[in-house]
Computed example of a mutant assay.
Amino acid sequence: MKNLYLLVTAFCLLLTACVQPGKYVGAKYPKTKTADVYHSAAEVKRHYKVIGKLTNRKYLDKENDHVMMMDAKRAGGDAVIILGVDSTITGKPNRMVAEVVKYED
């Protein structure tokens, strides 16, 4: 059982090492400790302003949320609104697009 645990841990570390940070264009703020993840602007119940746009490779859905959230925190965002896969913006297939937002209250 211990060997299985070590194998799973090593595999997870290998996967996270392969994830590259996304490309962020926008205002930079001090890094935040937490960032919320939304899949639609209608889900956000607080006043906010968009501070930038983030593009990243498409991973598994759960991993997409985590990667986008981590990149939003690095940019100083309080939340990220994942817009989905959009190759018209990036010019490349399998790219996720998101808006990084800062709460105003």
Rank of each mutant, 00 (worst) to 15 (best):
60 L>C: 00
63 E>D: 07
18 C>K: 06
45 K>F: 00
52 G>K: 12
19 V>W: 07
10 A>W: 01
40 S>K: 05
51 I>A: 12
14 L>G: 14
83 L>H: 07
96 M>D: 09
36 D>E: 15
13 L>A: 04
27 A>I: 12
12 C>V: 12
31 K>T: 15
49 K>D: 08
102 K>P: 01
94 N>M: 12
26 G>F: 08
88 T>V: 10
85 V>E: 15
34 T>D: 11
31 K>N: 07
102 K>M: 01
90 T>D: 06
83 L>A: 07
83 L>Q: 13
50 V>I: 15
88 T>I: 05
53 K>N: 14
101 V>E: 00
10 A>M: 06
82 I>N: 09
97 V>S: 06
65 D>V: 02
27 A>M: 12
91 G>C: 06
27 A>P: 00
69 M>L: 04
87 S>H: 07
56 N>H: 13
54 L>A: 11
50 V>Y: 05
92 K>R: 13
101 V>L: 08
12 C>I: 13
34 T>R: 09
75 A>I: 08
33 K>N: 14
41 A>R: 06
75 A>D: 11
78 D>K: 04
73 K>V: 08
6 L>H: 10
72 A>F: 11
71 D>K: 03
59 Y>L: 15
56 N>D: 14
94 N>D: 15
64 N>G: 09
92 K>C: 03
10 A>H: 00
31 K>R: 15
21 P>K: 06
94 N>H: 11
88 T>M: 10
84 G>A: 00
19 V>C: 10
17 A>D: 09
9 T>V: 07
